[in-house]
């Protein structure tokens, strides 16, 4: 909880500074694009968080996004699929890939890092083999599909006399956050995932089917990455197999870690992923509005994340020291 307050204050700090420096930042249009981005990337973050909860990692998220985008547009444009069947086919394929990750990790006891790193390379290569160097879009289907992510729902109360809209992609993320919060913190399966992350052996000895739960986490991660991939492709309407989704696994992992998920497993709240994604997207956007060169964008995000991690660790140590002193006193 304290971690969430920390990340929330970081968000507000960056937000206020940017707004004061460049008032255009808080114009309705700018706020809406920020929300769209948070919505789309947040979906990937939730998937990454579920895997990280078990103490694992999924590096293939970006390539799953790339493969999904490539496959959907390719099927639409070149194979005359209907949008619905193209999307379902791509998502089903990616769920299956998640199953394969899980099986390799639990049954063959391969390292999650290795399995999903191979996934990263294989799916990227497969996408390029399917689509080559073409840039594919949605053509006549675009208009209908765009409604999924950017239908605007007016925010009921005007702020500073301006009316703001909430795009549907952000609402999708809010809904997924609610669903997966309930899953992780309200169902026995969520509790099992937490137990596995903290002490897999004790979980197994308590009768939990640890392998099945881990496989489930990898399936959910790939499925969410694929759903995110569909929406990101619609948002971009231009998919290059070689580059679409590059680095997205790192955004997803960073959002989860920033939001309080420990890479050692067993710790974190799904709401944190939402906040983590928000901070990450905000940083990218703010660097534009603050007139920071595009070339520096990554370095800036990296530095802010590093400072966050350092502050968190220093604070944690201070708390432990304080507690010890108090115990010694009593």
């Amino acid at each position: 909880m304290k971690k969430l307050l920390g990340i929330l204050s970081l968000f507000l700090l960056v937000f206020v500074i940017t707004a004061l420096q460049n008032p255009k930042f808080i114009e309705p249009y700018s706020m809406e694009t920020l929300q769209v981005k948070i919505g789309l990337f947040g979906i990937l973050g939730i998937g990454a968080a579920l895997v990280i909860m078990t103490g694992g990692i999924d590096l293939s998220i970006g390539s799953i996004v790339g493969l999904t985008g490539t496959l959907v547009t390719f099927l639409l444009q070149e194979k005359d699929f209907s949008p619905g069947s193209a999307i379902l086919l791509a998502i089903a394929l990616c769920s299956f890939l998640g199953l394969a990750h899980g099986l390799l990790i639990t049954k063959l006891k391969l390292q999650p890092f290795v399995v999903t790193l191979c996934g990263l390379l294989i799916y990227r290569g497969a996408g390029r083999w399917i689509a080559g160097t073409r840039s594919l879009g949605f053509g006549e289907h675009l208009e209908g599909l765009t409604k999924i992510i950017s239908t605007e729902i007016p925010f009921p109360i005007p702020i500073f006399g301006k009316s703001y809209d909430i795009p549907s992609s952000f609402l999708i993320l809010l809904a997924l956050t609610a669903v997966f919060s309930l899953f992780l913190h309200g169902t026995i399966y969520g509790r099992y995932l937490q137990a596995i992350g903290r002490n897999e052996q004790a979980a197994q000895y308590s009768g939990i089917r640890t392998d099945r739960m881990k496989i489930l986490a990898y399936i959910l991660c790939s499925t969410l990455a694929s759903i995110g991939g569909v929406l990101l492709a619609i948002d971009a309407n231009s998919v290059q197999a070689a580059s679409f989704g590059n680095f997205y696994e790192l955004y997803a992992i960073a959002a989860a870690v920033l939001g309080g998920f420990a890479l050692t497993g067993g710790e974190g709240l799904i709401v944190g992923v939402l906040l983590g994604t928000a901070v990450l997207r905000l940083l990218f956007k703010a660097s534009n509005f603050l007139g920071i060169s595009d070339d520096l964008e990554f370095a800036l995000v990296g530095i802010v994340l590093l400072i966050g991690a350092v502050v968190d660790e220093v604070a944690k140590r201070a708390v432990t020291r304080l507690r010890r002193r108090r115990e010694a006193d009593s």
Partner: peptide
């Protein structure tokens, strides 16, 4: 510690787990 309990979990989570 390795097999019986989740050390960093509270009493209630541990006692309800199985």
């Amino acid at each position: 510690k390795a097999e019986g309990i989740v050390l960093t979990w509270p009493v209630d989570f541990n006692s309800s787990l199985p």
